[in-house]
């Protein structure tokens, strides 16, 4: 087990290095560097200004050299300053990460709380009315685009009924307790509806597969109650594919949800990374992307360890 973890951590470092190079070069290859974008906003800037600014920002150096400088600084824990906000990158990422985690964890947890019982409920009687009903709801959730759902939610609950705020986190209104929670309801509901469908489908499919296995028939033959068969035997085995899904989704908790965050003016990681990439803010974009990469890799590692915990027969190698 220890050898497996050490090997995976080394692999993680190699992948991080490769991703950092790829991401840096890709951002750099996009047309228009930060100074080009500045010229667009201010045609009065002279060519001498352009040359001076490019030299001051190091943009006159080859991409590989710039990446190497960035890497050396990052390895020392210095992710530099954001060009877009003239702030240390870490000062920008910390609050955005907190906001994204609040949003994503709430919708993730809510989605699982709904999906696991609903998936099991449907799987116990495949092709029954309740299976069709759960399936239909799941397909509806998967099919509705989050931006459309979010717009409808804003229109109904914020504009028409005025029950809930249309956007923001409540920080600007010094919202505390319940008032602050009200700002979470619409974005969390939107994200949950968008994700719960696929979770239900995974749980249902996995449970149907497990319920056909011989050991389930054996458990029933032993006279165990249906509840015991499901909770003690089927559920644990049925969760294996779900754990894979959750491991893959782990990274999204930290990288935010761009569309939902933009729609609800929620200052999270999705918006931050998107703005950084579009605005050629190398330091900010790289820090955000590397964090998302790291967390996704760790999520996958945890998923592998989860297999072992769920099924001791699994061998990690």
């Amino acid at each position: 087990m220890r050898r497996f973890i050490v090997t995976r951590l080394i692999q993680t470092l190699v992948v991080m290095l490769a991703v950092s190079f790829g991401a840096y070069v890709l951002i750099g290859l996009m047309p228009g560097d930060p100074i080009d974008l500045m010229i667009t906003a201010n045609p009065a800037i002279s060519s001498a200004d352009v040359a001076r600014l490019k030299a001051l920002y190091g943009l006159d150096q080859p991409l590989v050299v710039r990446w190497f400088y960035w890497l050396m600084m990052a390895l020392q824990g210095d992710f530099g300053y954001s060009r877009l906000f003239t702030q240390p990158v870490t000062d920008l990422i910390a609050p955005a990460l907190g906001n994204s985690l609040k949003l994503m964890l709430a919708s993730w947890a809510l989605s699982l709380v709904i999906a696991i019982p609903a998936g099991i409920y449907a799987a116990l009687k495949p092709r029954s009315f309740r299976d069709y009903a759960v399936n239909l709801s799941a397909f509806a959730g998967v099919s509705i685009p989050p931006f459309w759902l979010g717009l409808l939610a804003i229109l109904l609950f914020a504009v028409t009924l005025r029950w809930l705020p249309a956007g923001g986190t409540g920080q600007l209104d010094n919202a505390q307790g319940w008032d602050a929670l009200r700002y979470l309801i619409l974005p969390v509901a939107t994200l949950t509806i968008a994700s719960v469908g696929s979770h239900i489908r995974f749980v249902r499919g996995s449970m149907i597969e497990v319920m056909r296995q011989d050991f389930i028939r054996t458990a029933r033959a032993k006279g165990l109650s249906e509840r015991a068969v499901i909770t003690n035997h089927a559920l644990r085995n049925g969760m294996m594919p779900v754990v894979t899904l959750l491991g893959l989704e782990f990274g999204t908790l930290f990288s935010g949800a761009l569309i939902t965050e933009t729609l609800f003016s929620w200052p999270g990681m999705g918006r931050l990374i998107y703005n950084a990439v579009i605005g050629s803010d190398y330091n900010l974009a790289m820090a955000g992307l590397m964090l998302a990469t790291l967390v996704t890799l760790i999520g996958n590692l945890l998923a592998d360890l989860g297999y072992k915990w769920l099924d001791p027969r699994v061998r990690l190698s």
């Binding site: 804003i154 914020a158 729609l263 609800f264 003016s265």
Partner: peptide
């Protein structure tokens, strides 16, 4: 207050 999305801006105005 900054709104990157004009739909959110309009909704906030109306609320």
């Amino acid at each position: 207050r900054n709104f990157e999305n004009t739909t959110a801006l309009e909704a906030s105005l109306r609320t």
